[in-house]
Design a binder for these strands. Structure first.
Lengths: 255, 255
DNA sequence: AAGTGGTCTAGACCACATT
DNA sequence: ATGTGGTCTAGACCACTTC
């Protein structure tokens, strides 16, 4: 290998990641086996093994001895599993999730939204506002913007049935997220939508999410401070439990 | 290799981790080189390489071609890098960190604290309360409990100079953390310590941290909602940016 | 010059799953 | 029987650092 050359195993990894990102390889699809890579890419089996093993550690694929290597199901173990799947979180608690679609329109990115998505002002986006309820009690106002060209069918979706996040994740794995969490007093609209008491703080999660290397959606998630909290677990260097953060119910509400 | 045998590379990893956990190998110390492992452990160099490489990925050691492999400095790139190193975060912004120690006493674990640390009520703990300031403005009240037998020298520390987190991390790498984030109205004491306005919400982070497989410290971190926010970046399966969450200053305060 | 990590090869044995 | 992943070996070349 010459000086600044990219290692062979890294090239193999990049190639497979590219085939997954482009949609050529979809979740569940079989990835070339070690022996197939040996023949096709003219590498030794150890090199092919390292590429596939590291892709496993990084969550892109799953390997089963005797069967093969398969692209991970991004929906099931969503790459960025957070408040995104609020419907699943509620279901996991054995409760009933319902959602009201307050708004679902096409708009143009402006100000904070344009800046967050790294697009020029005026870029077409879809703006969706959904109130999520757990057993009838409102627990989240999802105020979301989506790049129109990333998800052109957004306006045709029924977000009372499938959450915007679930829809977006079904289009392409969301690979990266950045979020800011704030405590503040809500404005009147949020307070009314969430049925909050006077002076009750809200927990706001502002999140940008990337797919295929670009920011595709920007959301403000408003939660009533008295009824909700954010739980995160960090096992920094463990293999499969990378980063996790779920919204769970407060003890006081459970009783 | 027989059936349920532990792989050789894993045995090497376990041995080195044990030597680090026991304190035999301290941050900066040199770890046996690949060739030394080949001779001492009767393995091939590839096996020794895999063990050391994975320890690198997991943050235990750092490798420099031509020099050797060294135990990571847990203080610098703390395993669970979060609000923990608030002094470093402030320094990174070019600001001045100061701290006032409000309390530093020995106590017995009770209720929530005993439950969080998985110990019986009455277990000796140290209770430390520190107010952290950025350029003089209070930004965090750290209300922390530490298992006495984990850090027996806690009461001798000057937490105005070195934060409790930095001290704990220097004893042993903190390998795992669980945190809950809440928005709420602060009680009077917190409001006074943080110099907060009436009805200003606080952002509370409640965190348990593990070292060597057991929960060793429990902390409530109180922040003024108007001046602070929590930033998290999730690049789920990227290599070195495992989990990260820093406290950063709000734009409004920067101006 | 000697030692280090970084990479790669060509083979091997094993347990397991599928056919 | 064949293919898969999981592991391991013995050797090799390279770039880099230290002596």
């Amino acid at each position: 290998m010459s000086r600044t050359a990219i290692p062979r195993y890294q090239q193999l990894k990049d190639g497979i990641i590219e085939r997954i990102s482009s949609g050529e390889l979809r979740p569940g699809d079989r990835v070339p086996s070690e022996n197939e890579l040996v023949l096709a890419e003219s590498v030794s089996r150890m090199t092919a093994n390292r590429a596939l093993r590291e892709l496993t550690d990084e969550g892109y694929v799953e390997r089963v001895a005797g069967r093969g290597t398969f692209v991970s199901d991004f929906r099931a173990q969503s790459h960025v599993r957070e408040v995104q799947n609020i419907a699943e979180e509620i279901a996991a608690r054995g409760h009933r999730h319902t959602a009201d679609v307050i708004a679902r329109v096409q708009a143009e990115a402006r100000g904070e939204v344009a800046q967050a998505l790294h697009v020029d002002a005026g870029t077409p986006v879809f703006h969706v506002v959904v109130v999520h309820r757990e057993n009838g009690t409102p627990i989240q106002v999802e105020d979301r913007y989506v790049l129109a060209d990333f998800a052109p069918d957004t306006l045709a979706q029924d977000f009372a049935r499938q959450t915007p996040s679930a829809y977006l994740t079904s289009i392409m794995p969301l690979t990266e997220a950045e979020q800011v969490v704030r405590a503040r007093l809500p404005d009147r609209e949020i307070r009314q939508l969430l049925d909050m008491a006077d002076y009750e703080p809200e927990l706001v999660v502002i999140r940008r999410t990337w797919a295929n290397g670009r920011a595709v959606t920007f959301a403000r998630l408003h939660h009533p401070g008295n009824r909700y909290e954010l739980v995160g677990h960090h096992k920094p260097y463990a293999q499969h439990d990378a980063a996790r953060a779920d919204v769970v119910q407060l003890e006081s509400l459970k009783k």
